[in-house]
Design a protein around this nucleic acid. Structure first.
Length: 580
RNA sequence: CGGGAUGUGGCCCAGUCUGGUAGGGCACUGCGUUCGGGACGCAGGGGUCGCGCGUUCGAAUCGCGCCAUCCCGACCA
């Protein structure tokens, strides 16, 4: 590609409405432009990167035995009603009507469509397993689009769906995808970590997220310093403490205390001269419409996802004031487990507490010296709180660490959630009709590119790994009016292109400095500078974007040198471990 | 949806408090000089100051309403 002909508007100033580096650099490098909130256009340079990501994804999906399809973006409401998600999905689902006033949506994901397709075409175990994938534009009407392309409303996603005859097969499909994802992100030159995750609204039983480590990431994760355990913050388990038998002798008598108008836990502590560790918070939740009390230590934070999963509920939210009043007989802020009129579950953190403070279920009163068994009982103890600094690894007990990451991929075991709802069955070897076991697997294409920039940049701009670079090399004649330079440039451009490299020939009538700045900004891994002095002796400079290392080479050896370097780098992705 | 901020040529920003002829830098056009890390000079083109209503002799500036964008919290690839 000749730079002079390319639609590549670069900017020297950082756009004011971009906060994270990847967004800033994608704008400055002329990769993307915003149309409206959360909706972006890709310019040629940006599209080149997207195509590179897609290519890697295709190769690895195909290698893993999946087959590419292309499903519709516009989907009829009937399918979503059938799966139950027309109601469940909420406002993120962009809905519209056609001319006959029939309801449609733009697919935020494609479980419905694929399940519908497969159930109509697959009847027997002989046709299974199958894994189908596509790379498609999704639309999710996000509450808050942000960080440019990282979290946008319209975006390109690779989604794959596996169908198996049994649990064992489904697990194998899952493992294949898990391995494919590792290969994909390695080939993208990313530092990432697969972590255990919650399966969210997609549903299903088990899942892993692939998080690219970055401080700007929206997801928190926890990983063990000793074993392989790693999990999303919202999923990370807290080990069950050892239960110590409390000696009833230490129990102090219950004491009701007047605590007028003190509600926040800190105020209660100040008032009663105790620490939050001595207080038990009683939070009333509405779980699929039923009230449930969750007890947790005053200094801990409840993890609603854990609560939801523990209860096997579809929907968990903090109860309204009315419900709180109904089960406790008091306004919000004074709930306690004594005499509460609903199911109560306590976090492990309470297991060995004695003489603690709770709300009295009576306005402006708390109770001191509460004790389990003597005063009340809970249904059960469970892991309900967020992990925190200082917790041990739930698997091996060693030290865990916290990090942030960008979720670029997610693999789910769906089980029969959709096949059941949509009756995707097959006839098994034994002549019985059975439900297909499904899995689904997503990768954010644009997000992967953005995450890559997030990890690979410096003050000058982007530093692409060769696997994703829009061009692998740029040829920069320092002055296009010097025919010797241009002739050498043309020759080299032809030679490198012949050799199968993606080359940008900077034939613009610009000063050398401008060309250098642009090349650095858009992050091309290799730059060949053709200048007047060296060309006399037939040599040029080959410069590495990342290391800034310059190698002087005769024209004839440039291709071989760059080819070798590129091949070496590509090979290194295949063998490097993921890690951080 | 709650909290905060911003809206002035394509981009970055000043001007707004204290109303009085819309400015600078970058980019763009022409000419000349320059030419290995975002050159310089001269001459140009381009703006309903987010939108609407109001106050005023006069509004980018003051008031009210609306819209859009960005950042912080609940969703997700």
């Amino acid at each position: 590609m000749r730079y002079s002909e390319m639609f590549l508007p670069t900017g020297r100033e950082t756009p004011s409405d971009a906060e994270v580096v990847s967004h800033q650099l994608m704008l400055r490098a002329g990769m993307i432009r915003k149309l409206t909130s959360g909706i972006y256009s890709y310019l040629p340079l940006g599209l080149r990167v997207i195509r590179k990501v897609e290519q890697i994804v295709r190769e690895e999906m195909n290698r893993a035995g999946a087959q590419e399809v292309f499903l519709p973006a516009a989907q009829p409401a009937e399918l979503w009603i059938e799966s139950g998600r027309w109601e469940m999905y909420g406002k993120e689902l962009l809905r519209f009507k056609d001319r006959n006033l029939r309801d449609y949506c733009i697919g935020p994901t494609h479980e419905e469509v694929i399940t519908d397709l497969v159930k109509n075409e697959i009847q027997t175990y002989r046709q299974l397993p199958r894994n189908l994938y596509q790379i498609q534009t999704k639309f999710r009407d996000e509450i808050r689009p942000r960080f440019g392309i990282m979290r946008c409303r319209e975006f390109s996603m690779k989604d794959a769906y596996s169908f198996d005859v049994d649990e064992k097969g489904a697990e194998l499909s899952y493992e294949k995808m898990f391995e494919a994802y590792n290969r994909i992100f390695r080939r993208c030159g990313l530092r990432f970590r697969p972590v255990e995750a919650d399966s969210g609204s997609i549903g299903g039983s088990f899942s892993h997220e692939f998080l690219v480590t970055a401080d700007s990431g929206e997801d928190g994760m926890v990983y063990c310093t000793a074993c392989a355990y790693a999990a999303n913050l919202e999923k990370a388990a807290v080990p069950k403490p050892e239960e110590k038998k409390a000696d009833p002798a230490v129990f102090l008598p219950l004491e009701e205390v007047h605590t007028p108008a003190v509600r926040p836990i800190e105020a209660v502590c100040d008032f009663l001269r105790v620490t939050p560790q001595d207080v038990v918070k009683t939070l009333i939740f509405s779980c699929d419409g039923k009230p449930v009390a969750a007890l947790i230590r005053g200094d801990e934070e409840i993890n609603e996802i854990k609560l939801k999963n523990f209860l096997g509920a579809d929907m968990v939210e903090l109860a309204t004031d009315d419900i709180v009043y109904e089960v406790t007989g008091a306004p919000k802020g004074f709930a306690g487990a004594l005499g509460i009129k609903c199911r109560a579950i306590a976090d492990y953190s309470l297991m060995n507490m004695t003489n603690f403070v709770m709300g009295a279920n009576k306005e402006d009163y708390h109770i001191k010296n509460c004790n389990f068994k003597r005063d009340f009982n809970v249904d059960t103890f469970a892991d309900l709180r967020m992990v925190e600094e200082g917790d041990a690894c739930p698997r091996c007990g060693k030290e865990i660490r916290f990090a942030r990451g960008i979720e670029v991929g997610h693999v789910f075991k769906l089980g029969t959630k959709y096949s059941k709802a949509m009756k995707a069955t097959f006839l098994d070897r034994d002549g019985k009709e059975k439900l297909m076991i499904m899995g689904c697997y997503g990768i954010g294409i644009g997000r992967t590119a953005a995450a890559c920039i997030e990890q690979n940049n410096d003050d000058e701009g982007i530093i692409w790994p060769v696997s994703l670079a829009p061009f692998q090399a740029v040829i920069t004649p320092v002055n296009i009016k010097d025919v010797r330079l241009m002739e050498a440039g043309e020759t080299l451009y032809g030679e490198l292109t012949e050799g199968g490299l993606d080359v940008l020939f900077d034939d613009r009538d610009e000063r050398a400095g401008v060309k250098f700045k642009d090349a650095d900004l858009i992050g091309i891994p290799w730059r060949v500078t053709i200048g007047p002095k060296r060309i006399e002796e037939g040599t040029v400079e080959v410069r590495n974007r990342k290391t800034k290392e310059v190698t002087i080479l005769p024209l004839g050896r440039v291709y071989g040198f760059i080819r070798q370097a590129i091949d070496d780098e590509l090979k290194s992705y295949e063998t490097d471990g993921s890690g951080t």
